[in-house]
Design a protein around this nucleic acid. Structure first.
Lengths: 143, 143
DNA sequence: AAAATAAAGGAGATTGTTATCCTTTATTCA
DNA sequence: TGAATAAAGGATAACAATCTCCTTTATTTT
């Protein structure tokens, strides 16, 4: 569904949100461990997301990644758009560039409903709202 | 959403279904033109699908690809499973192998609803049922 | 100011997907 | 039987996604 890059990004942001809610910045090594991802790879991904303002970072001792209020209120859809673009929300299911309401592919209309449901769900899911479920072991980010 | 291989495969099968309904077998070159795909690549894909029984073929003059009754009644979900496997229907949205009802990722439950809707839609869409829409220019397979 | 820390950045390796080419096999038709 | 046709199969090229390593820059602490 999403690229691996995007999966790691979402997991990392939810993890960082949790640490931010606890009042801490968090380093790359701990993030990689916390979400079971390749350390250097998630570093690259967060570097890019930091540049885009999707996540905040601080260098030096006691530095690390964290989320400001805006970032905490971002939706998963925002994160996905930053990483994978919006083809998952708008692209044709059969890969036709010209596909549209006027010139639909055979599954355009049905597919649109599903995509819309997906988008709504991801727009409503804010990065900062998973902390509680994670704390109470009602959700997991590893493996 | 799906791999390019899968997108081409679905478009090709719907196209072949149309030709079969007209009573003809159809060659690779015409398929590639008809669905606007790389000729050699769709040849490879259909070769594989032919081996799996998803599409039928005949060699030699007047040969080409066609669909028998079973293949005509296949769902798009069947085609997708043959090409991409079932990770799109079962896989975790965040790429966690261990994700399940008991050990869910943070978006597991919401995600499941969307995946289920997607699957139902694709199970109901049979390869052979798009001919009419294509004939009446209510749907397109190119570009 | 120097040392230590941690992210940023650049460059490259690995792997998987997408795409192409050429040869072989099966079938039809003359 | 021989020529033509069309898919099957094998090998490989091109490209993108994934992943790793090393150096640089910014910041803090002593």
């Amino acid at each position: 569904m999403f690229s691996k890059t995007c999966e790691y990004a979402i997991r990392a942001l939810i993890f960082i949100a949790q640490k931010t809610n606890e009042g801490n910045r968090i380093g790359i090594k701990e993030i990689a461990k916390g979400i079971d991802s390749p350390e250097h790879f998630i570093a690259k991904i967060l570097q890019e997301l930091s540049r885009k303002g999707v996540v905040q970072s601080a260098k030096g001792p006691n530095g690390g990644f964290y989320l400001d209020r805006d970032s905490m209120n971002q939706s998963l859809a925002d994160v996905i758009r930053a990483v994978d673009g919006d083809k998952i929300f708008n692209g044709c299911g059969l890969g036709l560039r010209q596909c549209s309401e006027i010139q639909p592919c055979p599954i355009h209309h049905d597919f649109k409903k599903v995509r819309t449901a997906l988008r709504q769900m991801l727009e409503e899911a804010k990065v900062g709202t998973f902390t509680e479920a994670l704390e109470n072991s009602l959700a997991f980010l590893k493996r």
